[in-house]
Amino acid sequence: MATAAETPGYRRIYVWEFPVRLYHWVNAICVVLLAATGFLIGSPIAIVHSTEAYQQYWFGIVRFTHFVTAFIFFFNFLVRIYWGFAGNRYARWDRFIPTSGAKVKEIFEVLRVDILQMKLKGRLWIGHNALAGLIYFLTFFVFLFQSITGFALYSSMSSSFLPGLFAWIVPVMGGDFAVRQWHHVFMWFFVVFAIIHVYLVFYHDYVEGRGTTSSMVGGWKFERRDVLDERVGHNDHRDR
């Protein structure tokens, strides 16, 4: 029987550190809560009423949830930005920007696999593949946009410091109505993103066979030993 060292099996790699996983799930919960409460605020459902107005407060609670979640979402986002400079190389800021030819090539490879459903040639980067990274980079801009517009709308009913920082966007966009409209439009971005994101995680879990789905729970991903040996030889996974 072969020894473990000789078997070209899989080796596990600690890809997602705890702060990254925490960020991911806090963000996921926040986005779901924000979209759900946001949608309700946009078009509240008709709740049968037999009571007087002072006896219920459900819409107030929905709005309160939205606002509290927004603060958590915002600071969670800031922590993730910090971790982009403090975390391991899979969490680093440059994973989100196609800074090299290899990354651009990988983007096309992922498009080929995802859209044309062709067989994966070689291996994708063990962290975010280049296309995923780029898409997440774009979502950060949407996060930023939603934070700015959300806090700007909130600033008129708040005297606290943070929302006031964003009040300038209201005259720029031409009034609360327009800000609210665009804040609402981008809610749909999150809905569509969530559908495609969750599906692609499952799809890549299957295509790559490296534990993509569970990695965001435990942090481990798996790579074949022979691939890793080859990569170390080329110093590939460091410098790309």
Binding site: A46, I47, Q56, Y57, W58, G60
Partner: peptide, 18 residues
């Protein structure tokens, strides 16, 4: 302030009665 903030129907808004 917004018309909404001082509207006498505001309690119905918070109660979700539309």
């Amino acid at each position: 302030r917004r018309v909404h903030d001082t509207c006498y129907r505001r309690p119905y808004y918070d109660a979700g009665m539309f």
